[in-house]
Design a protein around this nucleic acid. Structure first.
Lengths: 129, 129
DNA sequence: GTGCCTGGTTACGAAAAGTGACCTTGGGTA
DNA sequence: TACCCAAGGTCACTTTTCGTAACCAGGCAC
């Protein structure tokens, strides 16, 4: 993703823009990111993930996992034991995503205070306006 | 974002999980990502962005820009000319986000074919099931 | 049978995304 | 003067998606 070096850009990026956006929206989903980061540690079961990702509901976790599975980022392995047991893992492709996604998560964590300050400042500015 | 090295993880990450998620959802928004990547090139006007980001509507661009402005990632400069002119720029903080976000956009572009193949395979698997 | 466990699915209300029409302020033009 | 345009929005409305709470399957234990 180098600069296009003309100060106007637009055109070259445009071509892939729609498709890229579609893929980004996969990643952009906050739950998916959390799933990927957690699976970066290794295999986890459905209930592990549910516990690990604070605030996620069963449904949202299911949807996130289905999406990731569909896109070939996560594998789903069912053991027909009782009670049933389902393991989730990152695929090779999923692991390639781990690095950029972790970088993003790290950025989010480390710049959180700055962002919170900016939000407060914005609030104040909006109020006094 | 290093491994927690215990194969279970969860706890340490949990603490910041909710807040991190909130910040990720900012970035995760596909339109915001596109705005940031485009502004990485330099100053752009509202209409430049609208043209550059294929498929975005006026309203969605406005909302994305407001969100980014609120979070201190972009600045908005109004020139009271006629017709009015509004410049958008990344802030220092916004530029720190450029690198991880570009990495992600690059990942999305370069793995697009793989993901598309995975989706097709998933479709077929679902159909035959 | 009743209850409990995991890993879901369904039903439904709330919130957000997305769309199209409209507004404003000045300038050009006919 | 009346009309139209351009930039950068906003508003009203429709469609999607999110999120919650409840329920289901099926094996085991009591």
């Amino acid at each position: 993703m180098k600069s296009l070096g003309n100060g106007k850009m637009t055109k070259r990026f445009d071509d892939d823009c729609v498709a890229t956006r579609e893929i980004l929206s996969l990643v952009g989903d906050k739950w998916s990111v959390m799933v990927i980061v957690n699976l970066g540690e290794g295999t986890l079961r459905f209930s592990d993930l549910k516990r690990a990702i604070e605030g996620i509901s069963q449904r949202m976790l299911t949807l996130a996992l289905r999406g990731l599975e569909r896109d070939g980022l996560v594998t789903r392995t069912v053991y027909p034991t009782s009670p049933p047991r389902v393991d989730y893992d990152l695929t090779r492709l999923g692991r390639t995503l781990l690095e950029p996604v972790s970088a993003l998560a790290f950025w989010a964590q480390s710049h959180r205070p700055e962002i919170e300050r900016a939000r407060e400042a914005f609030q104040r500015a909006a109020k006094s306006k």
